[in-house]
Write a protein that binds this DNA or RNA. Structure first.
Lengths: 235, 235
DNA sequence: ACCACAAATGTGGTCTTACCATAGCCGTTA
DNA sequence: TAACGGCTATGGTAAGACCACATTTGTGGT
């Protein structure tokens, strides 16, 4: 295995950072697969043309970020798989059906948690979102923002910001190609009126602070959304 | 300025981690105020009773987490915002407790779905992950990859790739500072053995194709993980 | 007295060398 | 075949040296 030459000392970056960058590039370039063992420190330092303490400093950084695991007496092992960002690329290749089923699962849990702890302000905000949604429908417009606000408000009331972020991610522009398709399917005033009714049912369950009912209503709403989408899906 | 005595070498943690912990404690204890300059490396190493290279490794860690800024020829300075280093995770800068509660909610749903449709190959893969995890524990190693494989295999069996991606994201390196901290807490063989037992219970429920039991077991596992983490959290 | 420049000193950065602790491999023996 | 022990390889830590950069101090000129 032939390594690149010595690291240039003329660059302003700390040497350990440069070494870590180089090792990262080797990992991501497929030079080491997950679970593989790197050469011994002495060998790797020589191959990279640096001293062993400098290499060790770089390995500290890589260990902290989780790319490698260092085992005394054994060696340095690659722990990370490079590609975990497919989530963001919209290249999930999944169908809207899967997205909506995922939303049903996640937002069901969110509604359950929210019903147990929703504040008066939360209920007020939901009420307002519902009223605004009704106005938009009556005016012949698509209440996209109000729909979003309704769902994200519930997520915000779950008491778990990780879940709230997930709901937001599932809903928002990051999945634009997919969510755009979904939104296109809700073109008729009737489907929007149905969705509004389902929102009302969710609101009532939250108002009643009934977690299981809220979960069921949210789940039903998203399952209905899925069904509406499938009925409108072209062949 | 009188420092504590030498770092005990008998503890299993890496020396750099111990030194970093000690310096962190000094910072958090108000020994150094924001913007203050630490003693020179040579002096600080002597005061802490360690070698300078070991101290430098610790300073790398502290620099990466943002606690200190190292200026060549000048010194090491406490950064202006001490509380940046707590649980900064970028888009999900929430506490580990929230992350684990979110995982309980999501992975509970995932286990429920997986139990209804898991294939023979899926069960075989889970069996293998469990066996590999047991081997790692018996060998005194941290079965990080096997733990991950177990969870992601279940997610893959849910029949919903959106959910699978969510689980992967919640687990993986994108949340590296957070998940690295969480992983650090699972250092003892006993906690790993407990986790393995909980995995077995999940596997049994999946094998029995009992969705509600699988959900409950997964939920319990992640709640236990949370509890273990909270018990290990430093004060 | 003030300013500019040079020298001295202090600091972190990197390297070399040495020794210690742990892990793994291989050969031998029961 | 399995267990044990010895040897080798590996990472962990330390000491010392030298280099590059930054800061402080001293000196000379105006």
């Amino acid at each position: 295995m032939k390594m690149n030459g010595p690291i240039k000392a003329a660059e302003p970056r700390r040497l350990y950072q440069q070494i870590a960058d180089q090792i990262r590039a080797l990992i991501q370039g497929g030079h080491f697969v997950s679970g593989a063992r790197l050469p011994a420190e002495r060998d790797l330092a020589q191959q990279l043309g640096v001293s062993r303490p400098s290499l060790r400093e770089a390995l500290i950084a890589l260990e902290i970020e989780g790319s490698v695991e260092i085992r005394m007496g054994s060696g340095i092992y690659i722990t990370a798989e490079p590609e975990r960002r497919t989530w963001q690329t919209g290249s999930m290749g999944e169908s809207p059906v899967e997205l909506m089923e995922a939303r049903a699962a996640v937002e069901g849990s969110v509604a359950l948690a929210a019903a147990a702890r929703i504040s008066a302000e939360g209920l007020t905000s939901l009420r307002e979102a519902l009223d605004a949604m009704r106005s938009e429908i009556a005016a012949g417009r698509k209440p996209l923002d109000q729909d979003r606000l309704f769902h994200l408000t519930i997520a915000g009331q779950s008491g778990n910001s990780v879940l709230a972020h997930i709901v937001g991610d599932l809903f928002d522009e990051r999945h634009s190609p997919l969510s755009a398709q979904i939104r296109t399917r809700f073109e008729t005033p009737e489907t929007w009126r149905n969705a509004l009714r389902e929102h009302e049912a969710i609101y009532d369950a939250l108002d009643a602070r009934d977690p299981l009912l809220a979960q069921a209503m949210m789940h039903a709403h998203l399952e209905e959304s899925k069904r509406r989408w499938m009925e409108n899906e072209p062949r």
